[in-house]
Structures are given as C-alpha cells and as structure tokens.
C-alpha cells in the first residue's frame, strides 16, 4: 500500500511578531511542520506500518522550507521519502495553487498511490481547502474531518466523530482523506529515527511553469488591539469595583 501525506512547512507562530503598523514580522521565525500535519504524518505512518505499506511526504513550500532540519524532522516521523517543490512564488499560493502543485508532485513521483492524507488545516491560513481541491484535481473521492481510519481490502473505512455519534464511511481507493488532529498523537522522533532520517531519500525541485492562483491577497495585517479602558477605582471603593465587574460580566 502506498500512502502519500501532504505536509505544509510554515513559520513557527511562536516567533511571529506584530510590528507597530500591524504587519507581521517573520524574521525571527524558524520553519516548522504545520502543527496539524504532524498528526496526519503519524496517522499515515501507523497505517503504513499496519498494512505493510510505504509513506511518501509531499510538500509545496517556499525555499525557506528547503532546510536540513525541517526535512530531517519530516523524515524522522516514519516517512520513507520526501518530495518537495520549493519555490518562493508559493509564498502567495492559495489553496487552488497549492493543490495544483501537489498534484504535479503526485503525478510525477507517486502516481501509483492508494491514499493521500492531509492535515486538518494549515497553521498559517487554515483554509482547510487543499484536500478537497487536490481530490478534485486528481478526480478521486475526498472525505474530511476523519477521526479514525483502517484499511479493508481496496477501500478504507473511516470514522467521523459527530456531536452525538460516530459515523463510519467506506471510501473506495484511491482517495484523499483529511484527518482531525485527534486521529493520532504525533510521535517524538527518537535518536535512531533522527539519524536514519538523514539518510532517507528526499528531493527538492523548483516550480516548473507559472503559478495560477484564484485568490488575490490585498494585505495581511494583525487585528487592531482594543485599547484598555483604564478605569481606575479609588482604594477602598470595593463596592463600585464589584459593581463594575458584575456589569462587565453581564
């Protein structure tokens, strides 16, 4: 069984700062695997281990992602091989464009796939659209918000946890499935896995051809901070303070 998992590489949100003009400062942020994609990677690795399969990771990223540490991190999580397209034009890629690039990677390197897994949404845009658009581009079925999955012959049986029941759906393969974070807890790669990751095959290519986007980004700004009200109560005036708190809680 051949499983493909789509991985986005993003700036670590811990180190993105908001500048005075509400623009975002990425200069201190390192590149990391988008958080929910680590769950998808784990689900893929477990599925492959249980079904004697292989997992390849695919990624459409900017050239910043072409970083030994990031690639090693991906490959130390039970992934057999990594195919990355790294091009700075992807900085402004929307879900459509990303899906097209991912389709290109799949067609060129993993066209014999059985299953493609995606994370719940990316840590930066969280559009949750790439899975659907990738499936459309590949013309295969897609199902999202999956909380459990197992392979049965030439189909997968997935679970979707709804408000008061768990839905079980059979999906014929090949298919694209996006998984919720609770589908699997990401592993902490061990020393052996990290060492092995350095020796696994990975390829990075630039983007062939122009990027077609459907969404135009006008501006990216942090939300405006609401100024504090600065209501100061005189010492001892606890009743007025309590009344104000009660009012605010209403």
């Amino acid at each position: 069984m051949k499983i493909v998992v789509a991985v986005k590489v993003v700036a670590d949100d811990q180190d993105i700062f908001v500048s005075g003009d509400r623009s975002l400062d990425y200069s201190k942020a390192r590149q990391i695997i988008s958080t929910y994609d680590t769950n998808a990677i784990e689900a893929a690795a477990q599925l492959a281990a249980d079904n004697d399969g292989t997992v390849v990771a695919i990624s459409a990223s900017t050239t910043k992602a072409d970083d030994t540490k990031v690639k090693k991190d991906i490959l130390s999580r039970g992934i057999d091989e990594l195919f990355m397209v790294a091009d700075d034009s992807l900085e402004t890629a929307d879900s459509y464009a990303t899906a097209q690039v991912l389709k290109g990677i799949v067609d060129a390197n993993a066209s014999d796939y059985d299953l493609i897994l995606c994370g719940d949404g990316s840590a930066d845009l969280y559009a949750g659209q790439v899975d659907v658009q990738l499936a459309a581009a590949l013309d295969v079925p897609v199902i999202n918000e999956v909380t459990g999955l197992k392979v049965e012959g030439d189909k997968v049986v997935v679970e979707r946890t709804l408000e008061d029941e768990v839905e079980e759906i059979e999906v014929p393969l090949p298919a694209v499935i996006s998984v919720s974070p609770n589908v699997a807890t990401p592993r902490i790669p061990g020393m052996r896995e990290i060492l092995a990751a350095g020796k696994k095959p990975s390829s990075v290519e630039g983007l062939a051809g122009a990027l077609e986007t459907k969404v135009e980004v006008e501006d990216i700004k942090a939300p405006e901070m609401t100024p504090r009200k600065n209501e100061i109560f005189a010492e001892g005036d606890i009743d007025a303070f309590a009344a104000a708190v009660a009012e605010a809680l209403k």
Binding site: I188, P189, M191
Partner: peptide, 27 residues
C-alpha cells in the same frame, strides 16, 4: 546532529562509558 533530545543516561559497560541512552534508544 540530533536536536530536541535530552540524553537521559550513559551506557556503562564494565565501568567504561560506551554510549548514551534517550527515550529507550541506545547509541
């Protein structure tokens, strides 16, 4: 280089340090 791993213990064989242990992995 391996990052993000705290070495927990040393492998000591016949009194000689011969490696490291972290998360059950030995090197």
């Amino acid at each position: 280089y391996i990052y993000g791993i705290a070495v927990e213990d040393l492998i000591i064989e016949n009194g000689k340090v011969s490696g490291i242990i972290a998360f059950g992995d030995e090197i």
